[in-house]
Design a protein around this nucleic acid. Structure first.
Length: 815
DNA sequence: TAGTTTTAAGTTTTT
DNA sequence: CTTAAAACTA
């Protein structure tokens, strides 16, 4: 009888579940009652799990259960193959994926929690913390984010324009992605400017001196150490006998080099990926890694997972019909195991406000008939190309009281007051941190101007050369800025000297809150604090709790940062203080020691999703960028802003356009049951409203898989033949001709022959004070009256409101 | 110099 | 429209 109940469940779950809750109960049943947890796998999945020996490449289509394969494989290796969990290394790209993998593997076998499941960058940080000395890096390094890198670069290239700095910083990051050093001949492929090469070299030199690392270093430096120190390489190759990589299509050159260095013949290597989901080439990801896998690793095997258990057939067809336009893909056919379902809906809407309202309407009512709230909010995801697009939905949802959560754009750690505090903490742990020093030594104002700061830093650099260089040629350590500043006090003005003293006093106050570390031990929970370390009395109202939070509060108070932000900004001062309190609260989970502080800072740098996961069980709509959706799934997905210039951006061509297409594919394949696409006729950007064209992707979709609603532009109207191809030039030109005849505007939306106020007609010649002569190309009605679009002889187009700016335009009579 | 006002520039996408 | 950098004044 009990057995029947089990098989009933198994029967009902013949189609694997994908929601977390279901998955949990399902695995428990399977592992307890059935002969093997492998029974839930299909043939290909099982083949992938049971595979041993040669390197394995798993080509896993969207929704084909790749995470299940990886986690099951980890458990199977431990259980059936007697593999020591500690010898397993599995790397992912996102913290979320790493967490999910660890959790799911542990559900099958508890021992999986001893395996090393990390993101690439977190693994790199872990590696460097222990083996950095072999490369001249001391273990108290702090990780610089992009802002910090930019600040350092700005200090090196004084007076360089902002845009130039950003461009160089970007090139430096890219160079590291490709494992290129300043003296590499291939560096020109990244950026041929000599300026870049010297800047990169200077940046590296300065960063070494500071003793911190940037994101790229977390991958690049471990590879250098593994190559340069055979002893370290041997140790790591001996330890990691199994190496697995998720989302391999997103690995960059440096990351694949890291894998090569860790891998040794005799170990087992398994990578999982999907070339159709490669969406990070702008960040150095190389699809070539996955395409070249068979050559890079001799005798490798390939398993394809092509059964999709997530989406219904029409959704999958629509997604595939877009990515099919790409050339240069491995090519695969996903089968929809769930069979038929609802047709995706393509909605044409007037503007972004209507778009937000449309989404709210869908979500508010649900599609479950009369029972308006049968569909939980959490079933829905609003997906967009750029973070800025979330704003419109947020305001609309706020107004309608629809609960939502925004994924990824959490700018908490970028806030000024938070960065200030983190800079102080960084300086505490590494007093060579020039960037932190520059940022905080005169904040709040202490009379320490740029001239003084430069003198201190130059002095420190000269100290480094005369004192440390000869004795420690390989450690490349810079001087302690706190000590240098202290020693220079007598040669500074009294004002500057007093300012320095105040700054150093604040740093000392923070340091006093830290316990000495006992050698290399793990941090001790609940160690008692010496009586001397009592939290200071609070001026600003910040409260210190457990552990490290006392240190954070002491720093914020003593440095005057708390007071500065509280009094400086009357409107948001309290919010700023609350943010500081939030930092202190987060710190309370860490030990009040140097090691605890390092852990805290590393955690913040590598995982900024703080609090987002806690909201997982909340019943809220998800607002998320296309890139962030990778690896996720939702019952109902609305892809918004499918307009030319937004998605794809109009500077995308060839390779880049193909990547945008893959992005479309990723977004659409997140949907399980229902998919909606929205496209607006006009959109406000930079405060201005501009007309939009439907995305080329909408012309590429197999029209038979769509239901079109709303005010469709020409070529999309109901009943229009779906069998045309926008790629055929002739057909396209013909349609353009027809559409103009029928009174459609060039962007495909209906237009008027003359403005309703009678002032302008299509084809009129006009003169503009600044832009010269031009012709009226388009007239349409908006909420603010007629909008006239002019194409000037220069080729540029402008538009204006008829009643508004007509004073600048003069109508020219032509016979 | 510090704190203000004015002007220009900008939005991909992320560990 | 929002944000950051240059420009300006007390």
């Amino acid at each position: 009888m009990h057995h029947e109940w089990v098989s009933l469940i198994v029967c009902a779950t013949a189609r694997p579940f994908f929601s977390v809750e279901n998955r949990v109960s399902w695995y428990i049943i399977m592992t307890e009652q059935l002969p093997s947890y492998l029974d839930v796998l299909n043939d290909e999945q099982r083949r992938a799990v049971l595979h041993t020996g040669n390197p394995l490449l798993i080509l896993a289509g969207a929704g084909s259960g790749k995470t299940r394969v990886i986690t099951t494989k980890i458990a199977w290796l431990i259980r059936e193959q007697g593999v020591d969990p500690r010898s397993i290394l599995a790397v992912t790209f996102t913290n979320k994926a790493a967490r999910e993998m660890a959790e799911r593997a542990r559900l099958i076998d508890e021992r999986a929690s001893n395996a090393m499941l990390r993101t690439f960058h977190s693994f790199g940080a872990w590696f460097l913390r222990r083996n950095g000395a072999a490369g001249g890096l001391s273990s108290n390094f702090v990780i610089y984010d992009d802002d910090d890198s930019l600040a350092l670069l700005a200090a090196i290239l004084e007076g360089e324009p902002r845009a130039e700095l950003r461009s160089i910083a970007n090139s430096i990051a890219r160079a590291k992605d490709y494992f290129l050093s300043p003296d590499d001949p291939e560096i020109d492929l990244i950026d041929p400017r000599a300026k870049f090469r010297t800047a990169y070299a200077q940046y590296e030199e300065r960063l070494n001196r500071i003793g911190n690392v940037d994101f790229g270093d977390l991958i690049k430096k471990p590879v250098e150490i593994l190559r340069g120190v055979p002893e370290v390489a041997r140790r790591f190759r001996e330890r990691f006998r199994v190496i697995m990589v998720d989302e391999y299509q997103d690995a960059n050159i440096a990351q694949s080099q890291l894998l090569s260095e860790l891998y040794s013949p005799g170990a087992y290597l398994c990578v999982v990926g999907d070339d159709d989901q490669s969406i990070y080439s702008f960040r150095g990801a190389e699809v070539q890694n996955i395409l070249d896998f068979p050559e890079t690793f001799a005798n490798s095997d390939i398993v394809r997972l092509e059964r999709n258990y997530r989406s219904t057939a029409p959704i999958l067809r629509a997604a595939a019909s877009v990515v099919d336009h790409n050339t240069g893909r491995l090519g695969k056919t996903l089968r929809a195991e769930r069979g038929d379902g609802k047709m995706p809906v393509l909605a044409f809407l007037p503007d972004q406000d209507e778009e937000a309202a449309f989404c709210a309407e869908l979500i508010g009512t649900g599609t479950a008939g009369k029972n308006a709230r049968a569909v939980p909010y959490s079933d829905w995801a609003i997906v967009y190309r750029t973070n800025a697009q979330s704003l419109g939905f947020e305001t609309e949802f706020l107004r309608r009281k629809i609960p939502y959560r925004v994924v990824g754009s959490l700018k908490f750690y970028e806030r000024e007051e938070v960065k200030d505090t983190l800079a102080l903490l960084s300086f505490l742990v590494n007093p060579r941190d020039e960037v932190a020093f520059r940022r905080m030594v005169n904040k709040p104002s202490r009379g320490v101007g740029p001239a003084t700061v430069s003198r201190i830093i130059e002095k420190a650099m000269s100290l480094k050369l005369s004192v440390n260089f000869d004795t420690q040629p390989h450690s490349a350590q810079g001087a302690n800025l706190a000590l240098t500043a202290q020693s220079m006090r007598h040669e500074l003005s009294s004002k500057a000297g007093a300012g320095i003293a105040a700054f150093l006093k604040a740093v000392e106050a923070g340091r006093a809150m830290l316990a000495e570390d006992s050698a290399d031990n793990d941090e001790h929970e609940g160690e008692e604090k010496p009586a001397s370390r009592k939290p200071p009395k609070s001026v600003s109202g910040l409260r210190s709790g457990e552990g490290l939070s006392a240190c954070v509060v002491a720093l914020a108070e003593e440095s005057g940062i708390a007071e500065y932000h509280l009094t400086n900004d009357e409107i948001s001062g309290n919010q700023r203080l609350a943010n500081l309190q939030e930092v202190a609260n987060a710190a309370s989970l860490y030990a009040a020691s140097q090691d605890g502080l390092l852990e805290f800072l590393e955690h913040i740098e590598l995982d900024r999703s703080m609090g987002e996961n806690a909201a997982d069980d909340n019943n809220a709509v998800t607002l998320i960028t296309l890139h962030n959706t990778k690896g996720l799934e939702f019952r109902r997905v609305i892809m918004t802003g499918i307009e030319q210039g937004i998605f794809p951006r109009d500077d995308k061509h060839d390779e880049d356009l193909e990547e945008e297409r893959r992005l479309f594919y990723v977004g659409a394949t997140r949907a399980m049951d229902e998919l909606y696409l929205t496209s607006c006729a006009e959109r406000r950007m930079y405060g201005r409203t501009s007309p939009m064209e439907p995305s080329v992707f909408l012309r590429e979709i197999d029209r038979d898989t769509l239901r079109i609603v709303g005010n469709a532009p020409y070529g999309f109207a109901a009943g229009f033949s779906a069998t045309h191809s926008a790629n055929t030039d002739g057909a396209y030109t013909q349609r353009r001709g027809e559409q103009l005849q029928r009174g459609y505007s060039p962007n495909g939306y209906p237009q008027n022959k003359a403005s309703s106020d009678g002032r302008w007609s299509l084809g009129d010649k006009v003169y503009h004070d600044d832009n010269g002569y031009g012709y009226i190309q388009q007239i349409r009605e908006s909420a603010d009256g007629p909008v006239v679009k002019v194409r000037f002889e220069s080729g540029q187009e402008k538009q204006f409101l008829s009643h508004h700016q007509s004073s600048h335009y003069t109508k020219i009579r032509e016979d």
